[in-house]
Design a protein around this nucleic acid. Sequence first.
DNA 1: TCAGTGACTGACC
DNA 2: GGGTCAGCCACTG
Length: 107
Amino acid sequence: MQQQNEFFKRVYKVVRKIPYGKVTTYGSIAKYLGAAKSARMVGYAMNSAHARPDIPAHRVVNRIGLLTGKHHFGGIKTMQQLLEVEGHVIIDDQIQHFDAVFWNPNA
DNA sequence: TCAGTGACTGACC
DNA sequence: GGGTCAGCCACTG
């Protein structure tokens, strides 16, 4: 608990940069931070990040736009609702037109 | 201290 | 073209 490594902080920093209405992936964030093979750690960082209101963790999904971490939002529908408010279409826990709303942190 | 686990991903068969 | 496997690393019991 409360390890708050530099890695975690950098993850938070990137997530906060995600524009409204856009989403990105764990792998992209990991790659941006120079740890492309540590995507799981990005997910773990999100596990701590979801408790922070200033971090839009719901905008981070896996590489195919699947809401794999929705259960960590306190409610299965919470993550989906947050995304729908931003204009996304979620069908079967997957973001539609994912490639159109994908935001690349490396760009 | 050690082994198991996880919001993932890419490579291999 | 799909299923499986290994690597990544912090946290937990």
